[in-house]
Design a protein around this nucleic acid. Structure first.
Length: 878
RNA sequence: GGGCGCAUAGCUCAGCGGGAGAGCGCCUGCCUUACAAGCAGGAUGUCGCUGGUUCGAUCCCAGCUGUGCCCACCA
């Protein structure tokens, strides 16, 4: 009845012999965009699902880390969209201030010019030029991944929306007294000539030197140790512990600071550890954080002895003008010449802060900077997680989050760069200052602060500034707080925490997102960090060209275990590509055999065991995939889909379906409907991770408009048929055992072997006899049937005896080998079971079902041993 | 120095109180009319070490060793 429509369908739904992503992806993507699928509509009444896009660290091309992150985010978004949510991404391309700044500086250096020569205006023009050029390139590369982002929302640039948000929040914090300007010891980069936040400093172990030197002479002398000899020019005291009797007589006196002629006091401070070194410390308040604290406590002078580029300056000594590292040696040698060096330890391993971007050791520097008083902000950011308003996945990351928010120092937000949001504070002729809000004008003739804001200041506003805040937009009302933030654990402390602080502060305690899903870093296939120096970086664009977006995305998703790094090698992408090909071929085959969704799947009572089994497996797949998605277990989502498709659908159902289609018209029709249904569900489930190939296959199968807006599948609700499943699994085992026998015997795979199957009744396998014969190339026994080998296959429901006429003597040695091995396995199993059951404590204390299970295993082992022993005995002796 | 994590097949990783798993790699046989980017079969592990808890430990606990990451103002 349904068969007559099939030829017509076949004509219109033929797939090309192979899948060529390069030819199809761009066209499909353009179609989706044109259809408006990606445009979020905040006026719709669908529930919102919004997602924050981590800052694109623009370096000129798509980074493997972006490809990874976007693959995960897009999978989430696509699934939610199919579930009927109004989905919204928060894109914005204006974030990459610092990298662009540095890149343009590099360009200028190559051109033989510099930022300073060019001037601020021209420099900023160059940055814009670069951004327009490469920012657009990156957008295109993101599109190639198939990101379902509405990139047309890229309207928040440095000039308008984001600037308003930055100014608004700055002024609010300023007025609340949470932003202040102070002279503090900050991390200074002599190369960048800018302040850095604590987060931008990397502490690295270096081999330095620990030099002990004598200040003063005779009785009034004291030995101090330092790793930074050059800072002695800025010493304004020597400190000892107040309880240290060795130096008690010196406290309150002064000694001469060598090389300078200055006299400095000896003071007592509890910071000093009497056990370390000589128990005396030189104090350089302007160049060391500890010393700065001591200096504040004791009202010491704080002379700065270096200029912005790290050269000794204003000391009135011969060392002025020397680079700090040069000076370290020169001063040490000058002291040595005076006989003041009493000990040297070299190499001396210690941690030194380095600038994250420019890599040189940072120089603590006393300077006037802007700070955010983070304590109240950080406390509420912590409370958002403590109260469960925001959850972090994996939950082990909670502790690290708390450690961080509970110990945050005030945040230095001013940067002496040219690119970025200027600090909205203006100074009057007499040093007055005023903070100017977004709709206010500074008094005429006043000048704006030259510094710009830390890049994390503006990106901390991302979750609401991209919705047009401070305007109360419809988008903001609908999509804030966002549903989830997907990002790497490396950025938790930089970015996530700023968003948490600003979100709670600006949005009346509303968090920026409900869920933080942390993933790991992409590593090379040996788990090593990808880097230029390791020469193991990969270009995702190359992989997109060679394998297609689906393969790349599936690779990424398959590797993404929560919070754990992802080793990726080309092998992984090849494997994913093989998967797309497999899916393609399976579908092509199913379609050519009339798979259809035009007819409904008959009720289960009219279906075979095999049909019922695959439908049950499909239901199980839906619920597993759903569960894993909800837990951000991306790798498991991919794994389930991969194994269902390959191991269950392709390896078994398709093979068995061939038999059913050949059986009768009625059987064929039912099978075609099941095939169509299973594929339909499978494509929907796969769509979030492999959007392009599934779109092509699904529209061909169903004639539907697009998977992007198709419904996400739900479980059918049908009762699982455990008996059918057991029988199918028995058939699988039987087939595998016969194949193994054939392989052991070296029988050509397609050689048809007359075979008699018996015992199938007890096992309930009679209806499947044709399937077994077909899949293992067995003929029915003819008149001249003469069994040369007997195989007994133990199944849960009974033993099937397989008698084969191999038309020649069997390889007795091979068979004996096999049986001996099986026997050994069974005997070990028996021994294990006996050991447990022989333990009275086990029988008494273990749960009954465990004991029963072991008993059942023992029975099976005994039966196996008996059967195999008999078979061995029946073998002709060689 | 403090904190967190990891140690399972040759490689990269799942699993996690009662029968050791996946992908890749490896061995054998097959171009069987969806697929050689494939099919079928096969081999491979004192589950880091040492103790403890338990009837039972790859799984829980402690210590050790190795390893990775984050944080950190010890001269």
């Amino acid at each position: 009845m349904v068969t007559e429509t099939l030829p017509e369908q076949r004509d219109t739904r033929e797939l090309p012999p192979s899948w060529n992503p390069a030819e199809v992806e761009g066209e499909l993507y353009a179609r989706w965009v044109a259809a408006g699928y990606f445009t979020a509509d905040s006026s719709s009444d669908k529930p919102p699902f919004s997602i924050v896009i981590p800052p694109p660290n623009v370096t000129g091309s798509l980074h493997i880390g972006h490809a990874f992150e976007h693959s995960l985010m897009d999978a989430l978004v696509r699934r939610k969209r199919m579930q009927g949510f109004e989905t919204c991404w928060l894109p914005g391309m204006d974030h990459a201030s610092i990298p662009v700044h540095a890149l343009v500086e590099r360009q200028l250096a190559a051109e033989g010019t510099s930022r300073r020569e060019l001037g601020r205006e021209k420099f900023l023009e160059r940055v814009w030029e670069w951004k327009n050029n490469y920012g657009g390139k990156i957008l295109n590369q993101m599109r190639r991944l198939g990101d379902s982002v509405d990139w047309s929302r890229e309207r928040f640039t440095m000039d308008d929306g984001l600037s308003r948000a930055v100014q608004t929040i700055f002024k609010r914090l300023y007025d609340d007294g949470l932003i202040y300007r102070a002279e503090r010891l900050i991390n200074w980069s002599p190369v960048l000539r800018s302040a850095l936040s604590d987060a931008e400093v990397d502490h690295k172990e270096v081999e330095g030197e620990l030099v002990s030197m004598r200040y003063g002479d005779g009785d009034a002398s004291i030995v101090v140790a330092t790793t930074r000899v050059e800072t002695m020019l800025g010493d304004t005291a020597v400190a000892v512990h107040p309880d240290d009797e060795r130096y008690a007589h010196l406290v309150g006196t002064a000694i001469e600071l060598p090389l300078t002629g200055r006299r400095i006091p000896i003071i007592a401070d509890t910071h000093v550890d009497p056990e370390f070194g000589t128990g005396a410390v030189k104090v350089t308040p302007a160049h060391d954080p500890n010393d700065f604290a001591i200096g504040q406590r004791h009202n010491l002078p704080m002379p700065t002895i270096m200029d912005e580029e790290g050269r000794i300056a204003n000391t009135g000594t011969e060392f002025d003008g020397m680079d700090r590292f040069e000076a370290r040696v020169a001063i040490r040698e000058a002291l040595r010449a005076q006989g003041r060096i009493v000990a040297e330890k070299r190499p001396y391993l210690h941690a030194v802060g380095h600038s994250e971007r420019s890599k040189e050791p940072i120089e603590p520097r006393l300077s006037l900077q802007w700070f955010v008083q983070v304590e109240p902000l950080a406390r509420s950011a912590g409370d958002l997680v403590r109260s469960g308003t925001v959850t972090i996945s994996p939950k082990e990351a909670d502790k690290r989050y708390f450690d961080w928010v509970d110990n945050l120092h005030d945040w230095c937000i001013s940067r002496q760069l040219w690119w970025g949001h200027r600090i909205p504070v203006w100074y009057g002729p007499d040093g007055e200052q005023v903070c100017v809000g977004p709709d206010e004008q500074p008094p005429a003739g006043w000048t704006q602060d030259e510094d710009v804001l830390d890049t994390w200041f503006s990106s901390g506003l991302w979750p609401f500034s991209t919705f047009g805040w401070p305007e109360q937009t419809q988008d903001l009302a609908k999509f804030y707080p966002t549903s989830v933030l997907v990002t790497g654990y490396d950025i938790l402390f930089f970015w996530v925490i700023r968003m948490m602080m600003f979100g709670g502060y600006a949005m009346d305690g509303q968090p920026p997102f409900r869920q933080i899903a942390l993933h790991g870093m992409v590593r090379d296939k040996f788990g090593k960090k990808m880097s230029k120096s390791n020469n193991n970086g990969v270009d995702p664009i190359e992989w997109l060209d060679r394998y297609g977006a689906d393969a790349l995305r599936f690779t990424m998703v398959r590797g993404a275990n929560p919070g754990v790094d992802v080793p990726i090698g080309e092998e992984n992408v090849e494997n994913a590509r093989r998967f797309t090909t497999k899916l393609w071929n399976a579908t092509r085959f199913a379609l050519s055999n009339g798979a259809t969704v035009r007819t409904t799947v008959p009720p289960r009572s009219e279906l075979t065991d095999v049909d019922r089994w695959i439908l049950d497996r499909t239901d199980a797949l839906v619920s597993k995939v759903d569960g894993y998605f909800e837990e951000y277990e991306f790798a498991k989502v991919a794994e389930e889909l991969f194994h269902f498709t390959w191991d269950e659908f392709c390896d078994w159902y398709l093979e068995l379906a061939k038999v059913q289609i050949a059986e009768s018209d009625e059987r064929a029709a039912a099978t075609r409907a099941v095939l169509g249904h299973v594929l339909d569900v499978l494509f929907r489930l796969l769509h979030p991770v492999m959007p392009f190939v599934t779109e092509t296959l699904w529209t061909t199968l169903t004639g539907g408009e697009s998977l992007v807006v198709a419904a996400w599948p739900t479980v059918s609700g049908a009762t699982q048929d455990a008996d059918a499943t057991q029988r199918v699994e028995s058939v699988q085992k039987l087939i595998t055992e016969i194949r193994r026998f054939r392989s052991d015997q070296g029988l050509a795979p397609k050689k048809r072997v007359p075979t008699e199957l018996s015992g199938a009744y007890e096992a309930g396998l009679l209806p499947h006899e044709q399937a077994v014969r077909s899949l293992v190339w067995l003929d029915a026994p003819g008149a001249d049937f003469n069994a040369t080998a007997t195989l007994e296959v133990a199944l849960p429901t009974g033993t099937v005896t397989v008698r084969l006429d191999t038309s020649s003597a069997i390889d007795v040695a091979a068979e004996r080998n096999r049986l001996t091995k099986d026997l050994a396995v069974a005997q070990k199993e028996l021994a294990d079971c006996d050991k447990k059951l022989g333990n009275p404590n086990f029988v008494a204390k273990a749960p009954a079902e465990v004991v029963d299970k072991i008993k059942a295993r023992k029975d099976t082992a005994l039966a196996d041993i008996e059967r195999i022993t008999a078979q061995l005995a029946a073998l002709p002796t060689a």
